[in-house]
Amino acid sequence: MFKDRINAGGQLSSLLPAYKQDEAVVFAMPRGGVVLGFQIAQIHKWPLELVITRKIGHPENPEYAIGAVGETGRFLLNKQEKFIDQKWLENEIKKEQIEAIRRRKVYYGDRKEEQVKDKTAILVDDGVATGLSLSLAIEELKAKKPKEIIVVVPVISEDIADSIGEICDKLIAIKTVKGYFGSVGNYYENFPQMSDEEVVKLLSIIWTRK
């Protein structure tokens, strides 16, 4: 079990290759993944950016992800969920895409994103349960044409680890869980919700770093 996201980010930092400052870019998945991404970016002196995706929760159990959507409207769905009302699904995809766009504006303002073309993209989140948001984030990153994509997470389901490993260049995970996974928060002693303000504060520290 991890003490908190700061602790998890520090542990992940020690497992990463020593790329030069201009060779790698950290991409965190907000909100929770930003704390880990911040730790990694600070320790290794790498740039920090975001990949913003939004979970689409089941209509009867919103905590259970049946899909994910990004800012561009690209989305992934759990193919096993065959009986979801299509009109409801279309509305949810649009709603969550709008929220992803809103977050980009709040977090970035007018700032331009660091280019990752021909560099190593290091994608980080605070844990992976279903893998839908992470899989979509990988697809979003591939469109930016990095040299390679390394996914780093503290904890991931064993089944999901296999599928994620097939679509990225390397997966680094501290803990791989067999059988029932539950929620990501179960693997932390302290797992508070993060606010937009906290995300902006961490990003500003990296972005104004000299």
Rank of each mutant, 00 (worst) to 15 (best):
V151K: 04
G131H: 10
Q115T: 14
G73E: 01
L136N: 08
K147I: 02
L141V: 12
K201V: 15
W46Y: 06
Y19A: 12
G32P: 08
P146G: 12
I122W: 00
W207M: 08
S157W: 01
T72D: 15
V199N: 08
N186C: 05
K112R: 07
R103Y: 02
Y108I: 02
M1A: 13
K175D: 09
K117D: 03
E63I: 13
G32V: 08
A41C: 05
R74C: 02
L136I: 12
L77E: 08
W46R: 00
K147P: 01
K178Q: 15
E81P: 04
V124E: 02
A173M: 03
T53N: 06
T53V: 15
E139S: 09
E99T: 04
A65T: 13
V25D: 05
G10C: 12
V177R: 11
I98N: 06
L15D: 11
V116L: 03
C168S: 11
R102C: 06
R54D: 07
H58D: 11
G10L: 14
V26C: 00
A68E: 03
G57T: 10
L203G: 12
E23W: 03
E197W: 00
I164P: 08
I6F: 15
G67I: 02
A143L: 11
L89Q: 13
Q11A: 12
K170A: 14
L77H: 09
F27N: 00
A18F: 06
K105G: 10
D22K: 08
A65Y: 13
A68P: 01
A28H: 04
V51R: 11
I52H: 04
E23V: 01
S157R: 06
V35R: 06
I6W: 14
L171N: 14
G73T: 01
D110K: 08
I164V: 15
G179E: 09
E148A: 13
E92V: 07
G165H: 06
D125K: 06
I52N: 05
Q42W: 01
K170P: 06
G179R: 12
R74G: 03
L48Y: 01
I150S: 02
A137R: 09
V106S: 08
K142A: 07
G37L: 05
L123A: 06
E23P: 07
I101G: 05
E60H: 09
T72C: 14
R209L: 03
Y187E: 00
K210F: 05
Q97T: 14
N7T: 05
I101Q: 14
A137D: 10
I156L: 08
C168E: 07
E139I: 03
L77R: 12
E23Q: 12
V199G: 07
K142L: 11
N186H: 09
D169Y: 02
K201E: 15
Y19I: 13
E113I: 12
W207C: 07
V153H: 05
V155R: 01
E114K: 14
G10F: 13
E49K: 12
K145G: 13
V151G: 02
R209G: 01
Q80M: 09
E71D: 04
A41Q: 01
T208K: 14
D118N: 15
L36R: 03
E92Q: 15
E189D: 14
Q42E: 09
Y107F: 15
I160L: 05
K94N: 13
A28C: 03
D4Y: 04
W207F: 06
I205S: 08
L50A: 10
